[in-house]
Amino acid sequence: MNNYLIVAGIIFCIGALGVLMRKNLIIVFMSLELMFNAANLGFVAVSDRLNLISGDIFVIFVMVVAAAEAAVALGIIVAFYREKGTIDIDKANELKN
């Protein structure tokens, strides 16, 4: 189980790196998906180790939430692009001044 958890941890950190480092809105969104998937792998590994089934059920619900989130997030990205003409995340600064 520990090997799986370490792989999940590494993928999660790469996803966090993408969210913190990149400025392209779509790549930030894809890094978020990576983090979701790392968490899913952790759930499956732990519930395999403890001989439970709840972790696997939870992964299905995470997938449902991720699908809903993808639809809404891509809608927001399209609306943002229509408003600003770019998908640079630094241009989302109207609360600043």
Partner: peptide, 14 residues
């Protein structure tokens, strides 16, 4: 219900 709300949300944003 969450998926239904997501449909409405995506429609409104787009």
């Amino acid at each position: 219900i969450l998926l239904f709300v997501a449909i409405i949300g995506a429609y409104l944003f787009a």
